[in-house]
Write a protein that binds this DNA or RNA. Structure first.
Lengths: 212, 212, 212, 212
DNA sequence: AATGAATGAGGATTCATTCAT
DNA sequence: AATGAATGAATCCTCATTCAT
């Protein structure tokens, strides 16, 4: 099953014929799977074309270089991640609830897109700008949300830049551990626990004078 | 300045002469710097030996392969990171304070060991087992600390496995952003803000019935 | 002059274009000549590609490794040697005559295929299984011939396994000496003398009660 | 158990001290075993010194190069083979009997010196002159024997050069097959069968007008 | 649009040999 | 006499990319 429903890669200025569009999609999917499974450096163009079922030369009809597909994949994942999160959060009554929904959606997304998620992680070393872009767009939007929420009193005040990176790091590691590494983790429980930490912190809860 | 004070690499079965030990150290340092600066795949053995000021073949007197040095560096960083954190935290009166000190120490450590920190990050893709080992030892000890602190009532109760990974992720991302990427960040302020998030969470603080 | 008329290398699953087939042939010929002239270990891939007039990388389009060409060459020689001998012997009225024709054909073949003959010899050390295969197929067929001839009374009875190896050894050494080392030997005379030894042995001939 | 009783390597002009002589012997033995087991090209000097239990540099105290040991080994084997054969044959009443004893002694010798026998075989490709020397000395002596025997009427007349190479080839292959490759062969039976072939040839025996 | 062939720069690794101690 | 360290030439092999068809 293709991981690309909703993607936005090169659909404009792309291949003119239907056949061409099909080939492009096959290559993109194959690249995502190969990069995800073997990693960028262990993946040869021939792996991709073989998996896509096309000739070696065909790759260069659609991409200028190996890095280009990789970057395309990362960029695409950025878009899709944002969509997925925005979607998950859009009906949240307040920011805290949005956090709760967000972390859960993120874990599910990571698990549903293992290959591509790994690609994004590796981008840090293969295409740092693409990686930075991925997180910058993300962190900007995220920071705004926090600032507005803080202004509305939905969350405490704080250095939102720092908080955003801390929160993204937490989600990322949980995505890694419970999305990629451990296949049988209970996403519900994990996201609940994580949300609790992010919302309430580690400090003991004071309730009617008792610590819990 | 050598990044290896306190390291534990190959002190067993290693070189028999003083000269040999010196060469080993030079190679190790050079490898850390090159890998840190260029990344594993862009680093050629000749880069390392050139920087170390020894002949190409000399590398293979001390290491069986490129991957071997890399792994040695990661393992070494694991030891040193644990030392650094244990050290920073050892006088903390309670767990919350320990968290505060820990995050700060971690940021400082990351900044003081940029090269090797990057090596560790990349290990995720170059030597996954080494990377896993790095975090597993770490997370095990961390989880214990949290469990005991929770039992003592110093922190709230929760799924410590999840919390540990969330916290490590937060620290890691902050280490990346404020340790590696942004050289002029105010470590004090960042670690304070981060500690506040980790300790108190995002939820608005209730004080005398008012939200802040 | 190509040494490959009648060869059977890689005609299956091989190159798809005519150009490819031509390149393969060039490489195979060049490899035979280089290996024959310098020996396996002194021959670099670049020697082969240079002689073949193609780029270095082209070699690896057609062969997985240096050993692979080598083995291909040995296997090919096995086929061709059998063909040559079978051909030479097919009209012999009886086994003794076949031996006579065989040893002569073998010497001629060795001389006409110096390079590849040397390759086969060296296979003993470079690719023992290929070498063993070469002789095993050979010795099996040969032993059958002897057994049947013995049954028909054309030759004496004896341990055919042993005789086959002794005869192959004799031929091989003669091939070495008079085929490879001494270019001006009289093949006719040599094969006559050899055949005489193989057929009649060293014992003095008894004719009318006189020893000769 | 050392394979070097009766050897003649460098015992003159060699090491002055007893310790030195012992080291030399250890290196020689180790070299023979390693070359025999792995082959010349797969054997590194370090393999030899490790097996000999001495330091790497020590090798070059006793030998100028890798090839030098190899050649020394081959030359030594030449001497020892001749001794062994001369010894086995010295009481033979006539040449035919000598052949019988010779082939048997050769097989036994090959089996008792597998490693070094293999070394000699490989010399063909590693040190052709040494190999040639081995066989030339051998073939010269052998040819003389045959000529004289023929003159005495003990064997038939023939081209002794050719016969010598044929006979050596036969012995060599039998040594290979029954000495090196097949460990459980019955040397008695093999040498009997081989001697019969060499003496009487393949032709059916005529006895009282009957063919056998 | 598709592709198989060709290429050579690049890089890891081996190892015989030298040398200072 | 003994040796551990140092070295770099030599080679195999990979693979992204180009190109002619």
């Amino acid at each position: 099953m293709s991981q690309h429903s909703g993607s936005e890669i090169d659909e404009r200025s792309g291949p003119k014929t239907e056949r061409g569009r099909r080939t492009l999609r096959k290559l993109l999917d194959a690249a995502g799977e190969e990069f995800g499974a073997r990693g960028y450096h262990e993946t040869a163009i021939s792996h991709i074309t073989t998996r896509a079922g096309v000739g070696l030369g065909t790759f260069y009809v659609y991409f200028k270089s190996k890095e280009e597909v990789f970057r395309a994949l990362v960029a695409d994942m950025g878009v899709r991640t944002r969509h997925a999160l925005a979607d998950a959060v859009k009906d949240a009554p307040n920011r805290l609830e949005a956090e709760r929904l967000g972390i859960r959606a993120f874990l599910e997304f990571a698990r549903a897109n293992k290959s591509l998620y790994r690609v994004v992680m590796e981008a840090q070393f293969v295409a740092p700008e693409a990686y930075a872009a991925y997180y910058l767009v993300f962190s900007d939007a995220y920071r705004q949300q926090l600032s507005q929420a803080a202004a509305r009193g939905e969350i405490s005040k704080g250095d939102d830049e720092v908080r955003v990176w801390a929160l993204m790091g937490a989600s990322t590691f949980l995505g890694l551990k419970y999305g990629l590494w451990e296949n049988d983790a209970d996403v519900d429980a994990v996201s609940e626990a994580a949300a609790d930490l992010m919302i309430n912190g580690l400090a003991p809860r004071v309730k009617n004078g008792d610590a819990t």
